[in-house]
Design a protein around this nucleic acid. Structure first.
Length: 224
DNA sequence: ACCCAGGTGGCCC
DNA sequence: GGGCCACATGGG
């Protein structure tokens, strides 16, 4: 099954339905990075609690996290799950930045490609987290692929097996203009669509891309 | 009592 | 390269 829906057309369809999504709440690069690590396989609701705890302690920054006791860091981020792993990942990230660059801004002067390689070498930073940091914290154009994006693209464009991360990223990047705001919002649209129509309660009659869906939204709960 | 969430690393083949 | 597993909490 092949859909003739182009990516720009898909974007404008979603954009028309959901409006511009000013996504990734977080006022500073540090906050975005912390959120990106905390949200690994966790709901944003739980991440919000963790972030709120950190803010309450005055520790919503990488420099503060460096100085925190592991125990109190773990206590703060407990609601976001996997708190031992994630506290370690935050510490490693924060240490790396300050020991090698002195500040996150200095690290972000690198171009997106080099930055990605470097981030991927850090323990606990995989492709999605690295790309989220580059797109939403460093604000450089790199497309973020997540579970929703994979699922939705698979449904619309009918790929039998789900394409590998880098493959899908290349596919999307070559189908739309390279632009930070567009990349940010497009990814947000995928998540919004996924949350509302491809999760627990599919609302087929209102799904903006229903007629392009290769399998039908009723299959929303199929195995990923 | 399940199943899922804005993943990642380690191990195996 | 892919398949499986641990990692942990909160909500449906």
């Amino acid at each position: 099954m092949h859909s003739r829906l182009t990516l720009p057309a898909l974007y404008s369809k979603l954009r028309g339905r959901f409006g511009f999504l000013d996504w990734w709440p977080g006022d500073t690069a540090d906050e975005v990075i912390i959120g990106a690590i905390l949200t690994q396989n966790a709901s944003w609701k739980n991440v919000e609690k963790a972030i709120s705890n950190l803010r309450g302690e005055g520790c919503l920054s990488l420099s503060a996290i460096r100085k925190m006791q592991t125990r109190s860091l773990e206590a703060c981020i407990r609601p976001s799950g996997f708190f031992r792993q994630k506290s370690r990942r935050l510490k490693i990230f924060a240490d790396y930045v300050f020991l090698n660059y002195g500040s996150i801004g200095a690290m972000f002067r690198k171009d997106a490609g080099e930055l990605r390689e470097e981030l991927l070498n850090l323990h606990g930073i995989g492709r999605e987290t690295a790309d989220s940091i580059i797109l939403y914290a460093a604000e450089k154009p790199i497309f973020v692929i997540d579970a929703y994006t994979r699922r939705i693209m698979g449904r619309i464009y009918g790929t039998r097996r789900e394409p590998a991360y880098d493959e899908l990223q290349k596919l999307i990047s070559s189908g739309i203009k390279s632009d930070v705001k567009l990349y940010q919002d497009f990814h947000a649209q995928f998540v919004e669509l996924g949350k509302n129509y491809c999760r627990t309660k599919p609302l087929c009659s209102q799904c903006p891309v229903k007629r392009y869906c290769a399998y039908g939204c009723a299959h929303a709960r199929e195995k990923r």
